[in-house]
Write a protein that binds this DNA or RNA. Structure first.
Lengths: 152, 152
DNA sequence: GGGACTAGTTGAAATTGTCAATTATTGTTC
DNA sequence: GAACAATAATTGACAATTTCAACTAGTCCC
């Protein structure tokens, strides 16, 4: 390889990395996670526990822990710890799934619903802050593109 | 709050989460990270070490460790460990920065450049696999939108 | 009823993240 | 130019997270 070729091969490595969707995903996520955790800290939540709470605030028959694990891409044992914590704080309940006695269904308590409302507002504020330079249309488009990667 | 309002407030919690850019970012990143690590494992790299190597393959005067830490959003002490590892394997070198004797400049060796070329191919294949349902234009658009979040 | 599989749980081990302290060097200020 | 605050890299300690294997209880299928 000629000297100039080697130089050319080197010079665009950084360019490549900043064009790399995977890298951008990682960095954007790191910023988003930090901002989210900071915004939720005042409520005693992290992004993880907030996500569990949000899903537990879903339909009356909330998600099973297996569904939580799959949706949040966590090990089932991590879900146990998250649910334990939120349950100890009276924000969610484990209810036996009437259709499958092995499974628990996770539902929010009244306190959980109330906290979720506040947490949602905080999370949305943090997100607006993070995406300040994106228009509403752009944000929707970003969500749509991400959804096709996140849920293949 | 009337019963129907409570039900309505609950029923869109899940919808909200899957519309939440932060959540989608987290999930897409988790998939991307897993795929990337799997693709790079055969070369003895992870996404982290690959990123350091890629940046070290940058211009002749590579990045300082502080720049690596900032770019990859890592604690400086983590960069030390990553650079130690790659250096032990003869893939990169620490060179004293002539302009600032406190700083090291991290540059790839010939072996490092060679491995990076193979790793780049593997990473790109994994990414194509992950983004299979996105067109080239959509991927470019996604990269542009992510860049505006990742580098505010 | 027996055997394969699944949901949740526990606990241990490995990896990663966070933080304070230290050394060497730089930049700034009087 | 001597004194002082600030910065780059490093070390080591500690917390948090991830990953796995094993276990119990329940389901599904034959």
């Amino acid at each position: 390889m000629a000297k100039s070729d080697a130089a050319a091969a080197q010079s665009d490595a950084r360019a490549r990395l900043t064009d790399d969707v995977s890298f951008l995903l990682a960095r954007a996520n790191a910023l988003s996670l930090a901002a989210g955790n900071a915004a939720l800290a005042a409520l005693g939540l992290k992004v993880r526990s907030y996500s569990v709470l949000a899903l537990a605030c879903d339909t009356a028959a909330g998600p099973s822990q297996r569904e939580l694990a799959e949706f949040l891409r966590l090990d089932p044992s991590q879900v146990v710890a998250l649910v334990d914590d939120l349950q100890r704080r009276g924000l969610i309940e484990r209810r036996p799934d009437p259709a499958d006695r092995r499974a628990n269904v996770v539902v929010a308590t009244a306190d959980g619903l109330a906290l979720h409302a506040r947490a949602l507002a905080a999370a949305e504020a943090a997100e607006r802050d993070l995406h300040g330079n994106l228009s509403v249309a752009e944000r929707a488009q970003l969500a749509e593109l991400l959804r096709r990667i996140a849920f293949p």
